[in-house]
Simulated scan of single mutants.
Amino acid sequence: MSTTTRKCFHKVTHVIFDNDGTLMDTENMYTDVVQEVLTPYGHTYTYELKMRCMGKLAPVAAELMINEFNLPLTVPEYMAKFEAEVARRISNVALMPGVRELLLHLFEFRVPMAIATSSFRKTFSLKARPHCELMPAFHHIVCGDDPELKAGKPAPDIFLLAASRFKPTPRPECCLVFEDSPAGLQAGLAAGMQVIMIPDPRVPAEATKDATLVLRSMAEFQPELFGLPEFDNISKFTFG
């Protein structure tokens, strides 16, 4: 059952997706990776701390961890350890429930879509490799190390940049954002966009209250609520 914080929704023409925890089931992997980095120093990666890192650019999250535990590492050293563990574990990242079906549906009806992820391009490419057949569905992908990106989430920059690269460029209010993190929610709202949040069940309700719509899974999404083509029969359309 979904919950809403608005009585009505506005028609949109474009959709922008976060990636980690929204399109791809990577958040548990990231928890394991960070714990692997922390274990030699005798520290534990709690969910409370994870929430403070979710959605942030990698160097920002690295600095947060170093300061939190007074780790004897520089940001580049921490990131090197982190990225080595990610590369070792990333080959079998699954999609979140309902993602493939929604992407097929929106692509079939030519709804312009983009990804706006805090992950750096190299890391995103590794995660996307098992799902390369889906990537043509996206008009473009904005990553956390994009040279035009000035600030990461919760600043609105990444979503505004993603919107600006559609041609023609839609107004922010015509874009619908899918997110799983509180920082991403804040970023989407600050960009002037409607935000559907699909949070981890452990995220406090207080952190989701400003979302346009809160869902347990992307499989619950009803496109027609936002003026997008509704699901009818299962699409026979495939990528590739």
Rank of each mutant, 00 (worst) to 15 (best):
R121F: 02
P136Y: 14
P136D: 14
L49P: 08
S217P: 06
T31G: 05
N67K: 11
F109C: 03
M135A: 10
H140T: 13
F17N: 00
A94Q: 08
F178E: 03
M197G: 13
V99F: 07
K236R: 01
P199L: 05
H10A: 14
I196A: 03
V177H: 08
T22G: 08
H139A: 11
M113G: 12
C53K: 05
L215Q: 01
A190Q: 09
D157V: 08
H140M: 09
D18G: 05
F82S: 15
P136Q: 13
F9L: 05
P156W: 08
H10C: 15
E173W: 02
C8P: 10
S2T: 08
A155L: 07
F9E: 02
A58E: 13
K122F: 13
V177W: 02
R88A: 07
H10G: 14
D146H: 13
A187L: 00
T44M: 12
D232N: 13
G21Y: 01
E101M: 07
K56W: 01
F166A: 07
I16T: 04
K7W: 10
F178W: 06
V99M: 07
C143L: 08
H14I: 15
L160E: 08
S125E: 14
K50V: 05
E77A: 11
T123V: 10
G144V: 09
E101K: 10
C53S: 13
T208H: 04
Q186S: 05
C174N: 14
